[in-house]
Amino acid sequence: MAMSSSAETAAARRRGRSGWLLSTPALVLLLLGAAGPLLVVLAFSLLSKGEYGGVALPVSGQAWFEIFFQRDIFDGTISPAKAHLAIFWRSVWLSLATTLITFVLGLPTAWFIATRPERQRALWLFLITIPFWTNLLIRTFAIMEVIRNEGLLNTTLIAMGAIDQPLQILFTDWATLIGMAYVYLPLMVLPLYAAIDRFDMRLLEAGYDLYASRWRLLRRVILPIVRPGIVAGCILVFIPSLGAYVTPRVLGGGTNMMVGNFIELQFGQARNWPLGASLSMALLIIVMVALLVYVRASAREGRDG
């Protein structure tokens, strides 16, 4: 008995070792591909800025300090870096608003597709994914063409007599919001569709039979059951929104920056690589905290019904 069990553990150890060996290539790739660059960014954020860009010694917390505070160049007084916080804040609320808009538009869209006859669904899903076939920049310029002062929207509204001055949408936060909602809508629709597709429509009749109104059916039956799709969709939209770069750059103009643009600025014109690196890390931390809070909260709500 003792013999065989020690033989077994030896075999298990061998199996374990060969398991490790087999997964080594993947682990190395993961380390090099994901953790490696992150470590580089972390290291950069803890160095001083070089004279013409790049980083230099000594090690310093200056970049992290600069995210939140600024030192007056004349009298050296320290005050909160309002501009930076405003950029973070804009990024967060634009991303939240984008998530909300795509959810409100995406839910009926996904519902519509999921309730089509089987053969039509593939076509609708195909239509939803068509924008992915075009370059993001081109799509963003297309949106610009629609909302600029002499664009499709304004000329139509003026021709209809609804307004007599063009609406200034381009180069405002609204433009960024419209652009991001357009770009990220498919990322909301697809997971919602997958969840609704699994939803048993007979439950609607059961709820309706038990005196639920349409609104209550949505709140008490549909939303709780398709929750995994909602969670996935919100994550898929919120995270890239937070780091969006092209859309705010093209539609928001130079002034309405989001974090992504601000980071790019540090690595480009501002030549402050450590600040760029620390901003990137800060963004990463925000995303992780937001994810954690969100997943925890939705799991709890799921448990409580």
Binding site: D200, R202, L203, A206, V221, I225
Partner: peptide
Amino acid sequence: SYALFPHL
């Protein structure tokens, strides 16, 4: 099919 609510 019974149609019980699976989340409750």
